[in-house]
Structures are given as C-alpha cells and as structure tokens.
Design a protein around this nucleic acid. Sequence first.
DNA 1: TGCCCTATCAACCAAATGGTTGATAAGAGG
DNA 2: CCTCTTATCAACCATTTGGTTGATAGGGCA
Lengths: 209, 209
Amino acid sequence: MTVSIMLVDDHPIVRAGLKAVFTSFEDIEVIAEASDGAEALDVLQQVTQNGTAPDAVIMDLQMKPMNGIEACRAITQAGGPPVLVLTTFDTQSDIVAAVEAGALGYLLKDAPPQQVHDAVLATAAGRRTLSPHITEVLLDRMRTPAPDLSPREIELLQALATGATNKQLAKQLFISEATVKTHLVHIYSKLGVDNRTAAIGVAREMRLI
Amino acid sequence: MTVSIMLVDDHPIVRAGLKAVFTSFEDIEVIAEASDGAEALDVLQQVTQNGTAPDAVIMDLQMKPMNGIEACRAITQAGGPPVLVLTTFDTQSDIVAAVEAGALGYLLKDAPPQQVHDAVLATAAGRRTLSPHITEVLLDRMRTPAPDLSPREIELLQALATGATNKQLAKQLFISEATVKTHLVHIYSKLGVDNRTAAIGVAREMRLI
DNA sequence: TGCCCTATCAACCAAATGGTTGATAAGAGG
DNA sequence: CCTCTTATCAACCATTTGGTTGATAGGGCA
C-alpha cells in the first residue's frame, strides 16, 4: 500500500527533488503540489472534494504570500491531513510556532533521503517526528524560561531596533527617559543580555520583532 | 551534444531535484556531486585528472566546513570550469562576494526549472547570467551612493550586529578598542547615522549583513 | 615621488547608556 | 485583602559609547 502526499514548497527544484526521492522509494506517491500556503489550502480543498485527500502534507515555512505556519494552522484546525514541516530554518521561534500551529513533524532540508522517507511514513501514520537537532532546540527552550515580554516592552523593542536613543524613545512613546531605562532593564533581564544591541539581536532571532 | 556539470550543495534533496530537472531536459548531464566546498575541490581534481572535467559547476553558498564563496574563488583561480551560484540568499554582500570570487552567474533557488536549465547552458558557454532580482539588487547598490564600506568595516559590522561591546569587538577582531572606535566612526559617517544600533538597522536594510 | 585610502593605536572629554534603589498607581488573580 | 505584574517616574553613579585630534605604516595610483 502506498502513502499519498501533498508537497508545499515555493522552490520548484525542491519539489522536484522530493518527488525524485519518493519515486525511488516507491511506497510514497505525490498526488498534489502547491507553491505557497494559500494555494495549498485551495488545492487541498479540491482534492479532498474529489475524494483523494493526501495521507500527509509536506510543508515549507518561508513562503509568500501565505507562509507555512498559517497554512499549517488552517489545515490542522479544519481537521485536514497531518503536516510534516520540512524547512531550512531551525530558529526557536520557527520550531515553536510550527508545533503550536499543529505540525506533527519537523525536519530540516539537509536531512538524508532515507530520513525524509521515514518521517513521511511516520507522519501519515499519525506519529510525531522531530529530527535530533530540532529536539535539542526544543529542549533548550524548555530549559530556559520563555521570554514573555509585556506588550509595552515589545513596543519599545520595535522602536529600539530603528536605532533610537533613550531620549528619542521617550519622545516616541510619550514617557520619560527614566521609564525607558526601566523598561530596558526589564527587557535585558528577560532576554538574558546586557545591552540594547544584543537585545535586538536576540529579539530578532526569536522573531519577537 | 550534452553539457556536463558538477553539483555542489549540502542538501541531498536539492541535488536530487536538480538532477531530476536536468534529466527531463536531456541536454545536461550531472557527472559529479559534492556536499561542501572542500569536497567539491577534491572531486573536481579527481574528475579533471580522469579527463572528464565538467563544463560548469553549480554551487550553493551556505555550506560547512568550506562555503561556496571560498570554493568558487579556489576553482576560478585554478582556471577551473565556470561557476553558477544557485542559492537562497539574495543579500548584497552575498551577491557581491560571489561575483568578486569569480562566479559567472547567480541564480536563486526559487527559479523555475526552465530558467535554471538556460542558466546552466549559458554558464557552460561562458556567458554571464544574473536573475532579474539579482540584477536589481546589484543596480540598487550602484544607484544608492555606494555605502562602500571596506572589508574590515563589514567584518566589524557583522560582529557588531551580534551585540558585542567595543571591548568584545576588539578581542574578536584582534585589535585595540581605539581601533574599534575609529572603524565605528567611519562606519557611522558612511552610513549616515550616529550610533551602533542605527548602523545595524541601516546595514540590514541595505542587505550589507 | 607624493597623495589617498585603509588599518592600526593613543589620549582626552562629553554624552549616552547601564545598574541600582526606591516610589506611586492601576489592574489581575488567588 | 494581599500579592504580583505592568507601567510610570526620580536620583545617583559607574561604565560605555561617541567625537576629536593626532600619529604611524603599508598599498595603490597618478
């Protein structure tokens, strides 16, 4: 019995690569494709109405106009097939966002074909698959407590990233310089850094801004 | 007559995809593969000694331990086959670095198969190929009064973006704090800003880092 | 040869930033 | 009711950063 899947990736080359890999294994069949999240939802609805819904969806993250996270959330909430995220990005925020959006598995694109094959079968069967590296990142996150910045702190961080001085931040946010400094101290301690530049770097990496 | 090429990419899936694409066109044949720059140089030397040197090399950039830029430079300087860079990254610094390293063409991985095919033939024939988007980025760079930072200044900027203090920058770059400050002042004036945070913002926007 | 650019370092001063303590007030939650 | 979080502000001090001036040295170019 073969497993039928749908590919969602904005790179034709990657889609061709996955198809080539699956063809060589012979127990996985690609029955649908899409090049972004919105198209994925359309196509999925069509094939589902035809009675040929895929057993799993392989989803990239970085796509325009609708990215993989949003598409994954939509599919999962609609009770669609299980989603295996296959991407190049391994930042904490990407991984966590994908898991929270309901992704069943998360694999990196540098994975060897055999591993991709196994992960697809696992996903179709409803089993979770996280590559070792991904698992490590998730454990790291649990070890270190969540960033959990307040809305006001995020606002300040956004303005901070534009290169504003404390005085300018005070004006922009209609507060005193003293308050700006207080917020900054809180942000630093929450992000585990000790200056504004590092804060921006960490915030960017965590996709907080 | 078929064109013979070598693939250098750390993702097995992408290599499979490229092979699948070229198989369908039938006038391009993949005769060698490597998964990073160092391996690429090894393999290239082997096949060249066998008298079966490829007509072109397709090279990814982000690879460990030796990246595509260094490999490209080595191949070009040794009078090897022409290199077509095929990558996901479109920052000014990547593009300029690749061109300076002697790459004949620069294509993004989201290019349609036909475009990849044409670019490979062009590269093998010694013609330059830049995808429209890449050309635009290069023109942008020429249009805007060239930030024109020195290599050392770029290096410093990269380290700066991680949130390092002047003292840490000095250690990382093996120079004194005084020198760090001198570089920073130059960077600020070239980018038209007056503090490190703004410098990073502008540099990011200009895709210098 | 002389000039400019890059890269390096030093000393000095003013301004910005970071760190601390302490305070007020509103709202959420046990 | 009490506590915690968030948001606001003040004063103080140490450290960092920014700005300036000046100096040395090598490479490239006219």
